[in-house]
């Protein structure tokens, strides 16, 4: 289960951000997690409080927004959503696409005080 090591990285990152912002309380954190990022929502929700124990992220509300696999075609300009991590345009079949979402694992926002 790599979710615990990911959660630990996240908590380290949170601590640094809060230090830089001069914040002492983290009310909530919103993550954007691609459906095909390799990170699973439930195990991560389980791991986060364990990693956060004794840090400013303890007792924080964790909000995970799971994003769909979406690609934007550079050939025809259309956006398509796939139910597999396919880097291919669903309209014209071109492989020249930009991945809009579905693979990312990032902090979207933090509500601090």
């Amino acid at each position: 289960m790599h979710e615990l090591s990911l959660a630990t990285s996240l908590v380290e990152q949170i601590t640094v951000i809060m230090g830089n912002e001069g914040a002492s309380t983290l009310h909530s954190i919103t993550l954007s997690v691609g459906r095909f990022s390799g990170v699973e929502k439930e195990p991560f929700e389980f791991a986060f409080p364990l990693a956060a124990e004794g840090t400013p992220a303890e007792n924080t509300r964790l909000i995970i927004e799971v994003t769909e696999m979406k690609v934007k075609c550079k050939a025809c300009g259309k956006e398509t959503v796939h139910d597999i991590p396919l880097a291919k345009c669903g309209k014209c079949g071109s492989l020249d696409v930009e991945i809009v979402s579905g693979r990312e694992f990032k902090i979207k926002s933090m509500e601090v005080e």
Binding site: L6, L10, I107, S109, V112
Partner: peptide, 20 residues
């Protein structure tokens, strides 16, 4: 760098694995 006591939302868009 707002007042440190203020409750606020930081819009970040930062990769969690940026260190790796």
């Amino acid at each position: 760098h707002p007042d440190q006591s203020e409750r606020r939302v930081l819009e970040l868009e930062r990769k969690v694995l940026e260190k790796n």
